[in-house]
């Protein structure tokens, strides 16, 4: 089914509020993969990401009446998810080592790998980057993922994370410096590339 025949977010929200049981499913299908990917990078665990993405949708459903539409539904949904991710991390032991990351993230086969060796190198690289991400504080990790993997503008990140744009800018800058330092320790050749 193409997006042309599916309701847009506002319509799906209205339909859900009107009692259409399938309408919310449209929103779930629309955002589940993208939100899952973001949460995998934030949480460092597919299992945790599955838990949190479902919890985020459920909470969004329960609180749907409080969504007034001033922001986009996706912004509101991501705000819920980021808050849940922060809570979730407090309960889980952080996955910091590369070995642990291997078993939790990046298990999906890479696309179009020219050779098994190169594929393995790429997978290792992904694992190292993910491990470096997990060494960051949760707030730094969130802002980096939202910027680099979601392509969020500073304004949107401000709405999701409930921060002024100035704080978004400074936090993102510090997050980059920190990640650079972490990667430099793990992948010195990557960071020095100019």
């Amino acid at each position: 089914m193409s997006d042309d025949v599916l309701p847009d977010d506002d319509q799906a929200v209205q339909d859900t509020l009107a009692g259409d049981p399938e309408a919310f499913g449209v929103l779930v299908e629309r955002y589940q993969d993208r939100l899952f990917n973001t949460l995998v990078r934030v949480l460092g665990s597919r299992e945790d990401a599955l838990d949190v993405v479902q919890d985020a949708f459920v909470q969004a459903f329960v609180k749907l009446d409080s969504f007034r539409g001033a922001a986009r539904f996706s912004t509101w949904l991501y705000r819920i998810a980021m808050n849940l991710a922060l809570s979730h991390r407090r309960r889980r032991r952080p996955v910091a080592s590369v070995d642990e990351t291997k078993t939790q993230v990046g298990e999906e086969p890479m696309d179009s790998q020219p050779s098994p060796e190169r594929g393995m190198i790429e997978r290792e690289r992904v694992e190292v980057v993910q491990a470096a991400l997990l060494k960051l504080g949760a707030e730094h990790r969130q802002i980096l993922v939202l910027r680099e993997m979601e392509g969020c503008s500073y304004e949107t990140m401000g709405k999701i994370l409930q921060l002024p744009v100035g704080t978004v800018r400074s936090r993102l800058f510090r997050a980059r410096l920190q990640l650079k330092a972490e990667l430099q320790a793990m992948l010195p050749d990557e960071v020095e590339r100019s």
């Binding site: 589940q32 993969d33 599955l50």
Partner: peptide, 20 residues
Amino acid sequence: DTLQAMPCETANKDLREAVL
């Protein structure tokens, strides 16, 4: 570039039914 080159993770399961 490094971060944007990270592969996109997918749930490989339909969360819709679980959520509904």
